[in-house]
Amino acid sequence: MGDFLGMFFNWEYIFKVLPDLVLVGLVNTLMLAAAATIIALFIGMLVSMALLSKRRWLRVPAQVYVDVLRGLPTILTIFLIGQGLPYAGFTFLGTSAYPYGIAALGLIASAYTAEIFRSGIQAVHHGQLEAARALGMPYGTAMSLIVVPQGVRNVLPALTNQFISIVKDTSLVYVLGLGIGERELYRIGQDMSQRVGNLSPLVAAGIIYLLITVPLTHLVNWLDRRLRSGKVPVVVEQPADAEPTAQRTFA
């Protein structure tokens, strides 16, 4: 029993790996995730616009993009994009695997993000776009000021979930071969585990992942409840009006 616990919770090894885990691994994990998220949000929004377009020549390629990236195993795509981009002439990203990992994670996530945006935007009542257009707003203005902000609000929980996925998927970019200082949480835990022949460093890495993902999961649940209940906070109305005012309190 003691051996068993010692295999997973050896405090000596955990403290030994902790500085690297936090100062290098956590920093890299968060940087990879943040950069990939920015790419995913940007490309995802563009692709969702194409998915919603009336024009077939925009819609069809966008749907293919989404289907392919969502249909492939993440690790296969990371290899393909991470190793393929340099071959395809995208050498301006340099020789480190790091930016290619970011690109791969970001592109994969952009497919999911596009679908998330699309569903959120489609959930906005079509009367919103009509009202904006009827006022004389051009399509792009009406979408960007009226429809998309409401659509994004609809999918904040799903977007947060997507961020959680990205955080976890950063553990896959090691396959591209990261430099010592570029290693993220998983790689640092795994390296140390192999060196000392004990799983405790990996457990420590796992705990750090959980410290990020579990609060975010609860944030998702909270956002979800808030949106479902009507998303506007308690509104207290001043009287002084002939008409009865709907006093809406959202539980």
């Binding site: 009509e130 009202a131 004389g136 051009p138 409401q150």
Partner: peptide, 20 residues
């Protein structure tokens, strides 16, 4: 068309105010 729509106001059954 946007210039014409500016000149023609429309009010809908479902209000369609921008809730955000």
């Amino acid at each position: 068309i946007n210039e014409v729509r500016r000149r023609v106001g429309m009010v809908f059954q479902s209000f369609n105010l921008f809730p955000h």
